[in-house]
Design a binder for these strands. Structure first.
Length: 605
RNA sequence: GGGGGUGUAGCUCAAUUGGUUAGAGCGCUGCCCUGUCACGGCAGAGGUUACGGGUUCGAGCCCCGCCGCUCCCGCCA
C-alpha cells in the first residue's frame, strides 16, 4: 500500500496516528523556517507541515524545492492544529500531518494555468483547458462533474435493473440511413466501396430487440451525428436509450418520472414531485412560443387575435384577415430596454420573416404622475383595444409590451425567442432571479406527426418515421396529414429538451403506408433501407415504444453548467477537433489503399 | 454555409485620437522570513501584440486576408 488514507479523511479522531498520504502539491507556503504543503488527491486536501528542527536538512531542502502539482508521498504523525490555526474552509482543517518522510514520486513542470485557484481557473481560455485537459480535470470542480456523471450512470443502471430492464449493447458500426442527421461514414476494407455509418441512435436495433422478445431494453448508448456543434451538442454523445413492449404512453411517463426522481435524489438529494405537468404542443406554443418551455420565467404570451380583428392598425387586422393571429408578450420591468436591445429583438423578429417588431414602453409621463404608453403604434388603438391589452397583459408602469402578428406558428415562435431574450436581459439586470435548486419538469405531448417541407413539397416526420399516429387520427393520414397527432412525447426541464420518444408503429402495413404514401419514399428505397425492419415486423412484432434521454445534457443540468463540454472528459471543439490529441489526423497512403479510397483534397501541411 | 464575440508576458487583463522604451496583478527565478492556508517582504527575468499583407513619418490600435477558440442562425428524422 502506497497510502494509508486519502486526503479528505483525517479528522481529530486520527490524532497521534502515523499516516501516509499520496497526492499532488496543491499549494506551498514556505515561511523560511517552516513549510506548509497542502497535499491534494481527488477526495480533498490535507495540510502537511515540515519543521526543520525535527527533520534532516536534506529532507527539508527537498520540501523547499517542491513546486505546484509535483506528486508526493508523505508520512508523518497526525496532530491537532495549534489553537487559532484551524482552517474551517476544508474538512480536514482541524488537523495537520507533521512530516517525517517525503518521497517525491514525480516532479511537475511549471503549469500552463493554475489548478489550485477556482477563481482564475474558471476564467482560463477554454482552448488552453482543452489542450491540457488532464490538468483541467484535476480541478476540483471538474472532478466533481465526472463524479456526478459516474454516480448518475450507476443510479440509472440500478434503477433500470430494478424495473426489469436488460442492458443490451448494439452495434456502432451500422449502415447509412440518410433520413435523419448527417452521419459519420466508415469505409469497409473487406467490402471495397462499401461503408458503415456510425448510428445517430440505436433506434432501429432497439425496435428489433422488441421483436426479439427482450420486452424491456435500455442502454447508455454512444451516438454520433455529423452536424454543426453547439454548447449542448457534441459529435459523439451519450443517451439513456429505452424501449418497452406492451405499453402505452402513460407507462413511459411513469417510468421516466421514477428514473428522474432517483437521479435527482442521487445527485442533488432533491425530492422531485411527480407526476410532471403535461402540456400539449399547441398549448406550449400558445403560452410560451416554444415546444420546450422554461416555465420558471413566467411572462406567458397572450392572444389578442379577436381584439384586433377589426383594428384600424392594418398590420394587426391584416394579419388576422389573412388567417393569422395577434400575440403579445409583457416583458415585466423592461420598459428601460435600450435601443440596441429593441434592435436585437427586432432582428429576431425579422429573421422569422416579420417586417418589424411592434412594442409599447409603459413609463411615467412627462408630468411624473400619470402612466404613459410610449409607442409609435398606440395612436391607432381605440379604447376597447387598449382595455383588452391592459387586462390580458396586466400592464403596469415599467413594462415592455411586444407584439407579433403573423401565421400562428410564426407569431408564437417569434415571441418565444423574444421571451427568452428578455429573460436573459432581466437576469443580467437582477430583476429576475431563479433559485438554482428549482427544476420545472414537464411533458410536451400531442406533437403533429408530420411537418410540411415547402422546398421539397412533401411531408416529413416531425420525430421519426416509426412514430405511431394517435389511433383515432389514423384515418386522416391520407386525407388531412396536417391534423394527425403523433404518439410522441418530449421531457423538458427548465427549458431544456432532456429527451423524447414515442409509441412506435408495430404493424407492417401501417409502417409501409407511412413510408410510401405519406412520406413518399420510393418502395425500392424503403426496401433497401428499412426492408429488414418491415420483414421483422411480419414475424410477430409486439406493440412497443420508448424514449431517449440526453445523458450529457442531464448531467450538465445537475452540475449547473451551460456547456456539456464541462461534463465530458474529453470533448471536442466547435469544429469537431480534439486539441489534446490533435484529432482528426491524416493517414498513410497505404491505409487509404487498403480502404480503396483516393483523396481529392490537397494534403494539409 | 451565414452572423456576432474574441486573440497583447506562462495565466487574467490594461494600454486616451494612430505617437516615448507595450504596463498591472497572479505565476516563475533568486534572496529573506517558524503558524501559514490568496502567507508576507525585497530584487529580477519574461513580449514576433495569433499569423500574412496593406495604409502611414509612425500601427497592439485603421484596412484587407487568414487561422484558432467561442456563442447564435441554418442544420440536428
Amino acid at each position: 500500500m502506497k497510502r494509508t488514507q486519502h486526503c479528505n479523511e483525517l479528522r481529530p479522531a486520527h490524532i497521534g496516528q502515523m499516516v501516509t498520504l499520496c497526492g499532488w502539491v496543491h499549494s506551498r507556503r514556505d515561511l523560511g523556517g517552516l513549510i506548509f504543503i497542502d497535499v491534494r488527491d481527488r477526495e480533498g486536501r490535507t495540510q502537511t507541515v515540515f519543521d526543520p528542527s525535527d527533520l534532516p536538512k536534506e529532507l527539508f531542502e527537498r520540501a523547499a524545492a517542491l513546486r505546484s502539482e509535483c506528486v508526493v508521498r508523505v508520512t508523518g504523525k497526525v496532530r491537532q492544529r495549534p489553537a487559532g490555526t484551524n482552517n474551517p474552509k476544508i474538512p480536514t482543517g482541524e488537523v495537520e500531518v507533521m512530516v517525517k518522510e517525503l518521497e517525491v514520486l514525480n516532479v511537475a513542470d511549471v503549469l500552463p494555468f493554475p489548478v489550485d485557484d477556482p477563481e482564475v481557473a474558471s476564467k482560463v481560455n477554454e482552448e488552453l483547458r482543452l489542450k491540457y485537459r488532464y490538468l483541467d480535470l484535476r480541478r476540483p470542480e471538474m472532478a466533481r462533474n465526472l463524479r456526478v456523471r459516474s454516480k448518475v450512470a450507476t443510479a440509472t443502471r440500478v434503477f433500470m435493473d430494478e424495473q426489469g430492464f436488460l442492458e443490451v449493447e448494439t452495434p456502432t458500426l451500422f449502415k447509412s440511413t440518410p433520413e435523419g442527421a448527417r452521419e459519420f461514414l466508415v469505409p469497409c476494407r473487406t467490402n471495397p466501396g462499401l461503408f458503415y455509418a456510425l448510428p445517430q441512435s440505436p433506434q432501429q436495433f432497439k425496435q428489433i430487440l422488441m421483436v426479439a422478445g427482450v420486452e424491456k431494453y435500455f442502454q447508455l448508448a454512444r451516438c454520433y451525428r455529423d452536424e454543426d456543434l453547439r454548447a449542448d451538442r457534441q459529435p459523439e454523445f451519450t443517451q439513456i436509450d429505452i424501449e418497452m413492449s406492451f405499453i402505452e404512453r402513460e407507462d413511459i411517463y411513469a417510468l421516466i418520472e421514477g428514473l428522474l426522481q432517483r437521479v435527482w435524489k442521487t445527485a442533488l438529494n432533491i425530492d422531485v414531485p411527480v407526476p410532471f405537468k403535461r402540456l400539449t404542443f399547441e398549448e406550449a406554443l400558445n403560452r410560451y412560443g416554444i415546444d420546450k418551455p422554461d416555465t420558471r420565467l413566467g411572462m406567458e404570451l397572450a392572444d389578442l387575435t379577436e381584439d384586433f380583428r377589426a383594428s384600424k392598425f392594418k398590420v394587426f387586422s391584416g394579419a388576422v384577415a389573412a388567417g393569422g393571429v395577434v400575440k403579445a408578450l409583457n416583458a415585466k420591468g423592461l420598459a428601460c430596454a435600450t435601443q440596441s436591445q429593441i434592435e436585437t429583438m427586432t432582428e429576431y423578429a425579422k429573421s422569422f420573416g416579420a417586417k418589424g417588431l411592434a412594442y409599447i414602453k409603459v413609463e411615467k409621463g412627462a408630468d411624473g404622475a400619470t402612466v404613459e404608453w410610449k409607442s409609435p403604434i398606440v395612436k391607432f388603438f381605440n379604447d376597447a383595444e387598449k382595455a383588452a391589452l391592459a387586462k390580458k397583459l396586466a400592464i403596469e408602469e415599467g413594462d415592455l409590451i411586444l407584439f407579433a402578428a403573423d401565421q400562428w406558428l410564426n407569431a408564437c415562435e417569434i415571441l418565444g425567442k423574444i421571451r427568452l431574450y428578455c429573460a436573459d436581459v432581466l437576469k443580467t439586470q437582477g430583476k429576475l432571479t431563479i433559485p438554482t435548486d428549482r427544476f420545472d419538469f414537464l411533458w410536451v405531448v400531442d406533437f403533429p406527426l408530420l411537418s410540411f417541407d415547402k422546398e421539397q413539397n412533401r411531408w416529413y416526420s416531425s420525430h421519426h418515421p416509426f412514430t405511431a399516429p394517435v389511433a383515432e387520427d389514423i384515418p386522416m393520414l391520407k386525407t388531412d396529414p396536417k391534423k394527425v397527432r403523433g404518439q410522441h412525447y418530449d421531457i423538458v426541464v427548465n427549458g431544456v429538451e432532456l429527451g423524447g420518444g414515442s409509441i412506435r408503429i408495430h404493424q407492417p402495413d401501417v409502417q409501409k403506408t407511412v413510408f410510401e404514401e405519406v412520406l413518399q419514399i420510393p418502395p425500392e428505397m424503403v426496401k433497401a433501407r428499412f426492408g429488414y425492419m418491415l420483414e421483422a415486423f411480419r414475424f410477430g412484432a409486439p406493440p412497443h415504444g420508448g424514449i431517449a434521454l440526453g445523458f450529457d445534457r442531464l448531467i450538465a443540468i445537475l452540475c449547473n453548467t451551460a456547456s456539456i463540454r464541462d461534463v465530458i472528459a474529453f470533448p471536442k471543439t466547435a469544429k469537431g477537433t480534439c486539441l489534446m490529441t490533435d484529432s482528426p489526423g491524416s493517414v498513410e497512403p497505404k491505409q487509404l489503399r487498403d480502404l480503396h479510397l483516393e483523396l481529392k483534397v490537397a494534403k494539409k501541411e
